[in-house]
Amino acid sequence: MNLPVLITGASSGLGLETAKVLAAQGVPLILGCHNVERAEAARQQILEHAPAAEVELLDLELASLDSVGAAVKELHNRTQPRLGAIVCNAGLQIVDGVRTSEDGYELTFAVNHLGHFALVTGCEDLLESGARVVVVSSDVHQGPRKSMGFPAPQWRAPRELATPGEGSGRDGRIAYANSKLANVYFTYELANRWGDRGITVNAFDPGLMPETGLSRGYPAPARIGFRFLAPVLIRIMPIARTVAKSAADLAWLATGPELAGTTGKYFTGAAEVPSAPESYDPERAAELWQVSDELVRTARQIPPAERR
């Protein structure tokens, strides 16, 4: 049975381009999006690209854990609920102060990590042996030596990372780097917990993609410059890639037969590479898992014995 791939943040950028690649290969898709109009527009683009594609839409707002819970319930209520893969692609970067999620958590941490944590763990019983989870991280978690000067993470206790505070644009970029380090911790912990079930979990660095909308929070001059300089940046910057190239690599991680037994790894493009030395700290990964579970249950008022 050709099981569907669920992609978060699939209405634009890397998520949409990855969906197009998979649709052309005949892979059924579930697009997790928080904007209905943009989601429908994305579906139409995919169908223009691959007219025979099977594309379902899933209402999913990662900044709201109740929305994530409702999406998990909807997935379980599908006629055939099993999933072939979950691609945790959605992400945001905030450079204009501090924002909070619907549940009162720092928004970058909430969307980039906590919402995906709730989604994936809530769908545990829909994933069987051979299924995959791919978590889109970034080399910004490795600090300036790998990210062309982007601020390094400043890891703190997970509850502190989830707590909003006063901040500047630089603090927002540090929060983004922390969230991408959290993505790697989540990947490694999930791979350890689910490894005996035959489910593979890997992290993916798509590189700097000047064509995408991740810079939408930056001032207008920076956004315009980024857009017009994109072709040049892709040619001259070692970490820059086209969206098409990164989408092909991400689709391969989600379905490529060569990776059937590969788990708990970090990929930059199609290359398996080491993540940051601090990302291999098992105590931090375990603490992040425990606290994330507690934060989800607290926000949704779920007793400890329940997960959905």
Rank of each mutant, 00 (worst) to 15 (best):
L3N: 04
V5R: 00
T8V: 08
T18H: 04
V27E: 13
V27G: 03
L29C: 06
L29D: 02
L31Q: 01
L31E: 02
I46G: 00
H49T: 05
P51Y: 12
E54L: 15
E54Q: 15
V55T: 06
V55C: 07
L62C: 03
S67G: 02
G69S: 12
L75S: 02
Q80R: 14
L83I: 05
L83V: 06
C88A: 15
T100E: 14
D103F: 03
Y105M: 08
A110N: 05
L119K: 00
T121K: 03
E124T: 15
L126M: 07
L126G: 03
E128F: 12
A131K: 07
D139Y: 09
Q142L: 14
G143C: 12
P144C: 05
W155C: 09
W155M: 14
P158D: 13
R170M: 09
I174L: 03
Y176V: 07
S179E: 10
A182Y: 04
A182H: 06
N183E: 11
V184E: 07
E189L: 10
L190Y: 03
D205I: 08
S215A: 15
P219H: 09
P219W: 06
P231T: 11
P238N: 11
T242V: 06
G261I: 07
Y266G: 00
R284N: 09
W289M: 10
Q290I: 15
E294K: 09
A299M: 04
A305H: 14
E306F: 10
R308V: 15
